[in-house]
Design a protein around this nucleic acid. Sequence first.
DNA 1: TAAACAACCTAACGTTCGTTAGCAAATAAT
DNA 2: ATTATTTGCTAACGAACGTTAGGTTGTTTA
Lengths: 166, 166
Amino acid sequence: MRDLANALGIEAASIYSHIRSKEEILQRVCFRMAEEFFGAIEAVKDEDASATEQLKRAISAHVQVLTRNTEASAVFLQEWRHLSEPYHTDFLALRDRYENYFREIIRQGIASGEFQVPDEKFAVLTILSGLNWIHTWYKPEGKMKPAEIAGNLSAMLLNGLKTNLN
Amino acid sequence: MRDLANALGIEAASIYSHIRSKEEILQRVCFRMAEEFFGAIEAVKDEDASATEQLKRAISAHVQVLTRNTEASAVFLQEWRHLSEPYHTDFLALRDRYENYFREIIRQGIASGEFQVPDEKFAVLTILSGLNWIHTWYKPEGKMKPAEIAGNLSAMLLNGLKTNLN
DNA sequence: TAAACAACCTAACGTTCGTTAGCAAATAAT
DNA sequence: ATTATTTGCTAACGAACGTTAGGTTGTTTA
């Protein structure tokens, strides 16, 4: 709190004119970021598109949110564990719902014959792990731009490392 | 420290008969795990094998270490940031060296025509992100065993989601 | 113009933190 | 048998933590 106050140029106690508690900050960051992610993925949702296309768009949307809010994303991805009840439970429910967007795409892709995966849940987990590692190394001033990251990630996850013989 | 002492059934101050400081614990966990990972990957190293085979073995070795030490792995993956100098710098150097094992395999696979990736460094990052997410959901009592996890992960990373038409 | 509110202040609260000092008992080494 | 070493204890330190109480000042609102 004292660091935060210092960064704001005010006294630590003054922060409490704006928030009720330290945890409220955590709550706000976590749930605002959840909204961001939902907003982004819902904006590109198109159930008529192929699963491949849908996945590419979902990945792109996710990467955009992540790279535009690197610090808030780090909180969203790591610090939600410290939420007290009922926020902790609520947050997990939101995360599950978000993961379901991806699971649904995978399911569709399997049904249409586009995808072939060993395990559906596992596939979603691997995709999201690849996405959610980005915030640890992404730098806005780096040479790889968000769109390029999304493209590379989609390519790797869809085609794998192996030489594509098609 | 008081929590730790409580778990040990002793007083907090008694811990200091065994360690110099709280950070020493962090240092020991981080560097012991680094040794574990290096030991495991060096044990399966075989430069005569195909890049595909090498990668599968490296992934398997990594997953074995990760699943056998879930809590220490979480520290190794997340808390190393809090290491003071010179440990912080030393740790990063080790991590770089470890990543190089994977980068070398990727490089070899590209050279041999086995792999086709958009970006070498990016490929390594994606592989390791998939590996290092495991500790957040893996449960020894769960139905997916380490060998199965390694197999699924290799399959996904090598072949991607897309139907394999070969 | 008066009342209400917002945004900040100083001072301090109770708690928790990592850690030290100094001592006692048990175990190992000479 | 004595001396050292290890492992634990009680008591307490100073620092940092999140937070509250109560007051001042400037800005909106009635």
